[in-house]
């Protein structure tokens, strides 16, 4: 009973937030509603027994993607009122796209329900939940059967990191950086200078 109630509440919140994402006037609010969608969807995933996916959704989409969106929205100087002006003009076209997408979803869903599943495709079924939960099952397969690819993915990310640094990092000579060692090694001799300025002349710096 509680499960059903939770499902309907989460689903309703997700749908309402989805409408708010496109209809909110302030783009920052849109991003906030987007985050709400991510969180409620991850709740739905938990209900469906896919807790790993739920956590992944929060970590990746809320933690990285949504924050990135927020940055972009705040950093770029976009006149959103102007952007919204053509809304009514494009609305019919948007509705058409939505309709086509919806029809495709219905088609796929009904085909999946009707079709026999090819036994080949079920080559690696997930273990029963009482043997291992999702996270354990994914971890086991990732660190054993797919260990090679897991490590290779690490190397790919390594290349991406080096590449990004090589192509963008510039050591600008006029930027002053903190050097803790230098600060600590500073003595009274290097920091203080005693002068005897003449009256009315001051010191030159």
């Amino acid at each position: 009973m509680l499960q059903i109630a939770a499902f309907y509440i989460l689903a309703a919140v997700a749908l309402i937030s989805a409408i708010m994402v496109v209809s909110a006037k302030n783009p920052v609010h849109s991003v906030m509603f987007l985050i709400t969608i991510f969180v409620t969807t991850s709740g739905l995933f938990v209900l469906a027994g896919a807790e790993y996916l739920a956590m992944l959704l929060i970590v990746v989409y809320v933690g990285a993607v949504a924050v990135l969106f927020l940055f972009v929205v705040m950093m770029l100087d976009i006149d959103f009122v102007e952007l919204k002006q053509g809304f009514m003009r494009y609305a019919p076209f948007g509705a058409l796209v939505a309709l086509v997408l919806f029809a495709m979803f219905v088609l796929v869903a009904s085909a999946v329900v009707e079709a026999k599943v090819d036994p080949h495709v079920l080559a690696s079924p997930t273990p029963a939940l009482d043997v291992a939960n999702n996270t354990q099952a994914i971890g086991r397969i990732l660190y054993t059967d797919y260990i090679l690819f897991f490590q290779l993915a690490g190397m790919v990310l390594f290349v991406a990191m080096i590449g990004a640094i090589v192509l963008t990092l510039r050591h600008k000579p006029y930027v002053k950086r903190q050097n803790v060692g230098k600060q600590v090694a500073r003595t009274r001799k290097t920091g203080v200078e005693n002068t005897k300025p003449k009256i009315g002349e001051g010191v030159s710096l």
Partner: peptide, 22 residues
């Protein structure tokens, strides 16, 4: 999967080498 990982690892490094004189 190995094909794809190999190809990506190789090409990603090559893209950077192409743009090296930035």
């Amino acid at each position: 999967l190995a094909v794809y990982m190999g190809v990506e690892l190789q090409s990603l490094a090559l893209y950077v080498l192409a743009a090296y004189a930035r």
